[in-house]
Simulated scan of single mutants.
Amino acid sequence: MNPTLIAVAHGTRSAAGRRQLQDLAAAVARRRPGLDVRLCYVDVQEPKVADVVPTLGDAVVVPLLLSAGYHVRVDIAEAVAGTDIPVTGPLGPDPVLLESLTRTLPAADAVVLAAAGSSDPAWRADVEEVAGRLNARIGYVSGSGPRVPDVVAQLRRQGARKIAIGAYLLAEGLFYRSLHTAGADHVTPPLCHDPAVADLVLRRFDSARLLTTATAAM
Rank of each mutant, 00 (worst) to 15 (best):
P189C: 02
D185N: 13
H10M: 04
S207R: 13
M1Y: 02
H193R: 10
V111Q: 09
A107L: 12
N2W: 01
V80I: 09
D58F: 04
D150F: 07
L97E: 13
V197C: 06
G139T: 08
P90T: 05
P189Q: 01
I6F: 01
G173S: 13
D36N: 03
V28T: 00
P54N: 03
I76Q: 08
A114I: 12
P3R: 03
A27T: 00
N2D: 03
V201K: 04
A25L: 02
R31Q: 09
P121A: 11
L21S: 07
V112I: 10
R19Q: 14
V96N: 09
G11L: 05
I163C: 13
T83H: 00
S178T: 15
T215W: 12
V72C: 15
V44T: 11
R103W: 09
A116W: 14
Y70P: 12
S100Y: 10
A115H: 10
S178L: 14
E78K: 11
H10T: 03
R32E: 05
H71L: 14
R31T: 00
T88C: 11
G139H: 09
A153M: 10
G159Y: 07
L134M: 07
D185S: 06
A208G: 04
L35P: 00
S144N: 06
P3V: 00
V80A: 02
V141I: 14
G34K: 00
L200F: 07
D206Q: 06
A196C: 04
